[in-house]
C-alpha cells in the first residue's frame, strides 16, 4: 500500500487511481465529520463532495507539517462551516444568555445512548448550536478559536453551546418520556 506521501505525489500528477485511493482511504472518516456537521444525510453528502473537491484542488498546498488526516479534517470542517454560513444567524439576545449558565446537569443520559442515537440528536439541533457543539465538544476548539472561525464573539460561541446543551437535554427528556410510556 502507498504511503500518504506517495499517494499525494501521484494525486498531484492527476493520477485518477491515486485520487480514488485517497478517497477510499479517508472517505468514511470524513463522512463521519460531515454527518455530525450536517442536518441530514443529503447535506452531509454535499459537504463530502465539496470537501474532496477542495482537497484535490488544494493538495499542492499541503506542507507535510502534520498528518494528512489532520489537514483533511480541517478542510472538511471549514467546508461544513462555509456551506452552513448561509443558515448561521447568531442573535445578540442569545449572547446575553451566556451569563445564565449556572446549570450543572451533566447530561449523563447522553452516555447511555448509542452512537447513532446521539448522532440523530445532534443532527436535530439548529445549525448554529450544532456547529458550535461540534467544534467545541468533539473537535476541541476553544471559544476564541470558534469565534474567529465563525466570525462571532467568544460570548456568542459560549451561549450557542449552552443553548445546544439545553436543547439536547430537552430532547433527552422527551425521548425518556416516550420510552417510559412505551414500556408501561
Amino acid at each position: 500500500m502507498n504511503t500518504d506521501k506517495e499517494l499525494i505525489g501521484r494525486c498531484l500528477q492527476n493520477d485518477s487511481s491515486a485520487q480514488k485511493e485517497l478517497y477510499t482511504r479517508y472517505a468514511a472518516r470524513m463522512y463521519g465529520i460531515c454527518l455530525r456537521f450536517a442536518g441530514h444525510a443529503l447535506e452531509a453528502q454535499d459537504i463530502l463532495q465539496e470537501g474532496f473537491i477542495r482537497v484535490f484542488l488544494q493538495l499542492k498546498q499541503f506542507r507535510y507539517q502534520g498528518s494528512l488526516e489532520g489537514w483533511l479534517r480541517r478542510i472538511f470542517i471549514n467546508t461544513a462551516i462555509t456551506l452552513a454560513k448561509r443558515e448561521l444567524k447568531f442573535s445578540q439576545r442569545e449572547e446575553l444568555n451566556s451569563h445564565l449558565q449556572v446549570d450543572s446537569d451533566k447530561l449523563e443520559g447522553l452516555s447511555r445512548l448509542s452512537q447513532q442515537e446521539i448522532l440523530h440528536l445532534i443532527q436535530q439541533l439548529p445549525t448554529g448550536y450544532r456547529t458550535v457543539f461540534n467544534l467545541y465538544v468533539i473537535e476541541g476548539y476553544t471559544h476564541k478559536e470558534i469565534g474567529r472561525m465563525l466570525k462571532i464573539s467568544e460570548n456568542t460561541s459560549k451561549s450557542q453551546l449552552f443553548a445546544a446543551r439545553r436543547s439536547l437535554r430537552a430532547k433527552l427528556t422527551e425521548e425518556r418520556n416516550v420510552n417510559g410510556r412505551e414500556r408501561s
Binding site: A27, A28, R29, I33, Q45, E108, L110, V137, I138
Partner: peptide, 23 residues
C-alpha cells in the same frame, strides 16, 4: 459544557460509509 467525555470519544473518530455514487 457538562457533556460526558464519552460523547467526544465516541464521535471524534466516528466513521460512516458514504453512499456508493459519491466518488
Amino acid at each position: 459544557h457538562n457533556i460526558p467525555p464519552q460523547v467526544r470519544e465516541l464521535f471524534h473518530d466516528f466513521e460512516a460509509e458514504p453512499p456508493p455514487q459519491s466518488w
